[in-house]
Write a protein that binds this DNA or RNA. Sequence first.
DNA 1: CAGGTTCAGTTTTTT
DNA 2: ACTGAACCTG
Length: 659
Amino acid sequence: MHDLNPPQRAAVLHTQGPLLVLAGAGSGKTRVIVEKIAHLIASGRMPAKRIAAITFTNKSAKEMRERVGKRIKGDAADGLTICTFHALGLKFLQIEHAAVGLKRGFSIFDSDDSSAQVKDLMSGAKPDEVEAAKNLISRAKNAGLSPDEALAAARGNREKEAALLYQRYQARLSAFNAVDFDDLIRLPVQVLEGNADIAAAWRERIGYLLVDECQDTNDAQYRLLKMLAGERGDFTCVGDDDQSIYAWRGANPDNLLAMARDYPKLQIVKLEQNYRCSNRVLRVANALIAHNPHEHLKKLWSDQPDGDRIRVWECRDNDHEAEKVAAEIAFLHTARNAPWSDFCILFRGNFQSRPLEKALQLLRIPYHLTGGTAFLERQEVKDALSWLRLVANPDDDTAFLRAVQSPKREVGATSLAKLAELAQSAHLPLSRAAESMAALRQLPARAGNGLSAFNDIIGDLRDHAATLSAKDLLLRLIERSGLLAELRAQCKDEASFQRRRANLDELADWFDGGPRGGNVGDLAAQLALLSRNDKDDGGNQVRLMSLHAAKGLEFRYVFIVGCEDGTLPHEISVEEGNLEEERRLLYVGITRAKQALWLSYSRQTRRFRELVRLKPSRFLDELPQSELQRDGADPVADAERKKERASAGLAAIQAMLDG
DNA sequence: CAGGTTCAGTTTTTT
DNA sequence: ACTGAACCTG
């Protein structure tokens, strides 16, 4: 506590009523949250089990859990809730499912499942139309609107059509006993706002609320926060409007302003001392973000030394750019004896990682890519999860359709269409229709046999669901379903079979160490919330990730590649007039750097089949030029670079000899 | 019905 | 370059 600076201490000690902490980048906001939790518990102000700390990503929840674990020894922190908004909403629905007409074991549809439904409802629509419609539905949900409310609010034909689609989409979901990601927020809000008893019970349960990154709340999340905090509003919200980078999924930084209106007693504390970045990095970041209009004035300062010059590199193309970055990392790793984990490469879009990976591999530099093919998006994992979903939730037609065809069991499109027809006229979910003898008799013999074999396996798994642990059930499922055998048959070589099998083992491990609860459906639902960024990181590796994924992290050496107009700012954002958010994105990237920063751009890139000329990002012109060192402007730097190239070349030759 | 082949479209960020 | 959809064949 005594290491805290005065505003940090004020934020920690303020425990009655609403508090907003405007925390600049690197100003120790996580530390304040952790200290505050410790203080609330130690002072007896609130027992751990009535404190909830809410984050936006699983990654930050995990990080916070670790830091709390280090700060609070023993069992004092037992019962503390630290999770994402979505995980909290899920927990809420698992308890209050009856209030929104959901049955136990309900499924969570991921984006792909949602897209498939929308596509099906809009027969014949092109993929981008489907995505657009899905986004409209998502926007309505993030605004906290029910289908009826959306219809009432719709102006003009297009909006009306979208609202009607939302209605049909939602009807599907409830027929499937399923919710999508957005419902995890919207439905709890609906329950809390419409049911005083339940709201009172939850306020008893959660006596103090802390919300991290609250500039990222969307309207539905803000309403959830208000309902949980109640009139008194015992909460601490921590946020930074300069780091708001999720407007595209409904985040509304105006919620920070709304908070002052809704809670007249709101206290505001500003954290303006940055402990992370070199002074030079901070000057550059401040100059950039000064180009955005500001509601809350905040002046970040640092008493750190100036650190290294900020390098701006012009490259021939992305391969050249990647080679330069990799060479520089290899050079500094040796020259400064810096561990690989000191380095981070940031980019706007995940697709930009490819050339970088190639270049790092060539130099034998170990790296970890955050956000590669998501674990949960792997075919074998999705297959197994579909089986599990169906075991827990017979109404889940989406899970049925996937499970029944993986592995293949001679039930094809024609038979499934027939089955759907029968299910519809009998008002049954597909999996129930598939169990009826009458239906089986109407299908071709081969398909009928396939289906009854499938039914037997599902029945066996349901019989064991109550007695086996979740992990054992999953293992039984992987074996019984034939997924394992199919995987072996599919893979050409043993190595790839073992690799994919390891994914299934990992899934089982998640169940093993995962949150307890007994109910398989609950576990499957929690798994659905895991994202691509949650896989183990750490280790002594160079880190590669998108600018979005980098929020909250810090590294000694940061490379931001693709600083081109059209890439950063992204052209879609420019078209939509979201330049300010793109600027904040670069601001977030720059403020990750503790000591040194590189900004690079290419003159051209290969896009699909043609070469495209690129211009340097307009943001580079907004930086104080005196702080930058352009490539080639300095003979000393050039000499250094020559050395790097030589060492990169040596390393490459060495790598080839080794290979 | 399943597995293979060709061919078009494709790239923003995440729970 | 890489993926998924459409089409073709045993």
